[in-house]
Design a protein around this nucleic acid. Structure first.
Lengths: 137, 137
DNA sequence: GCAATACTTCAACAAGTAGTGAAGTAATGA
DNA sequence: TCATTACTTCACTACTTGTTGAAGTATTGC
């Protein structure tokens, strides 16, 4: 959310790059790939949506079924699916009166299950996180 | 962003779960793991942050160096690092006057490079996005 | 001690986004 | 044909989040 690039940049430091280290890394990643990855991560970064994907990983479902399972409204679920669809994470096909949604791709399923497995392990040996920032007072 | 759970749920459908399919999937994922995964994805779902992580994947850097590379202000970079830190994605250690940041974990590096690789391939055979889902290979 | 450097935190704003009821569209069946 | 079911889209509101200057904290050097 780049809020209008105003006058000057934030305060810049005196230490130039290369002062500390000898090698200077730069962009290094394709802008397009980065943008695409961000879109995927953004879509995955919402609990209801991620849960929905985890459910769809077990098989196709129609919108009404999802709404029932999640105990959410049709409109709500539909909007969620729209976001997932615009990030190419789900597929959609009609089956009579119903529209069945599923994971777009095996790859997506792997990405999700990897992340969930990783998250269960608790990667760094830390219980919570972001906690001890309080100045003496 | 559940906007105050008002009166009734959105319009519910008439077709009960089980009407279409025989198996009914439920939660299926640990709430804690899901929450944690969401926090990670949320942190990854921002271009400047993801780029920053990709840069850190090449080695530790201090805040000033990052600010210089990204052409962003110290404050801006610092806030970004705060978000990444609170999602346990980066490590931090002091080195004299400087504070060096790096990836928290090898796992994170893999997650990112996997996602970027996946994104470069363009998983569905599509140039742009949000149009039609086609499964290839 | 004091000043400088390197960062962090605060506060405020702009922009983004999720949820939702109402209204709209699409397939099916009578 | 019209009604019904199953969804989607619209428009709005409430909330979240990224950026930023100013002010604060921490380490080093004099």
């Amino acid at each position: 959310m780049k809020a209008l690039a105003t006058a000057r940049k934030n305060e810049q430091p005196d230490c130039a790059p290369g002062e500390h280290r000898r090698k200077r890394p730069s962009a290094a990643v394709s802008a397009a790939a980065l943008e695409r990855a961000v879109r995927i991560f953004k879509a995955l970064g919402d609990e209801p949506r991620l849960r929905l994907l985890a459910i769809l990983a077990q098989g196709e479902l129609c919108v009404s079924e999802i709404a029932e399972i999640d105990d959410d409204g049709l409109s709500t679920v539909s909007q969620r699916l729209r976001v997932l669809r615009s990030a190419d994470l789900v597929s959609r096909r009609r089956d009579g009166q119903h529209i069945l949604y599923g994971l777009a791709d095996q790859h997506i399923g792997e990405l999700i299950s990897n992340a969930l497995a990783h998250a269960s392990e608790g990667l760094p040996a830390r219980p919570s996180a972001a906690k001890k920032n309080r100045k003496k007072n």
